[in-house]
Amino acid sequence: MFNVAVIIPAFLAAGVEWVEAFTIVFAVGLTIGWRAAAGAAFAALAVLAVMTVSMGGVLSLGVNIAALQFLIGVFLLLFGVRWLAKAIARQAGLKPLRSEADEFNKVRARLSGGDWSGSWIIAFKGVLLEGLEVWLIVVAMGGHGGWASLAGAALGALAALAVVIAAGVIIGAPLARLPENVIKFTVGAAIVSFGTFWMLEALGGPTVWPGHDWSLPGLFVFYAGGGLAMVSAVRRFSRGRSVL
């Protein structure tokens, strides 16, 4: 019933986004109360659920699989290259590492003096935008293999949501100690691998990749290895410039 292969990547990718959404909801909850903040979060989640079910309906209409695969591949590339580039930049020190504690303080500062409806909208928009990225991952990873894959990816994303909420409630603070950049780097490399694989397979047919499906792990190693090499190259370059 579920495609297990997509559950773990969807879980990890969605987990990162849910942590960011949780930080916003947590800050809003402290300002206008938990019931209102949770209401805003659930309203956003309901919109995302409707979008996911609608996408499943579109898939069951029997659209051209090659065209769908191409579209999904391009979307995964659009998504993956920026995740990977951002994670490399952060790891190499070009950009500051994202801190949930800092994000929490920023949202709290925005909320100070704000009204109830303004705060509610911040929570709704925050969950909707972070959740939109989750929706894209679920559709992109699940759309390729029909209902079983879509259900597997959705299950991974829902499991991540449950874990983040449970951890957040237990800790009672933003989840600041997660190795977010490592997860983003790994998932970014995986998403770019899937994107490249599907985009080219849709264009050139199933024999285009040497080793067929076995090319996927090869692509992951290539992108992850290339990304790590870039991190050390950028660090060396930056150090060299600072000495001069």
């Binding site: 580039a85 490399i88 930049a89 770019v192 992108y223 290339g226 990304g227």
Partner: peptide
């Protein structure tokens, strides 16, 4: 693709 990622880093 990797070259594209390198372009986006900065």
């Amino acid at each position: 693709t990797l070259a594209g990622v390198a372009l986006l880093i900065r």
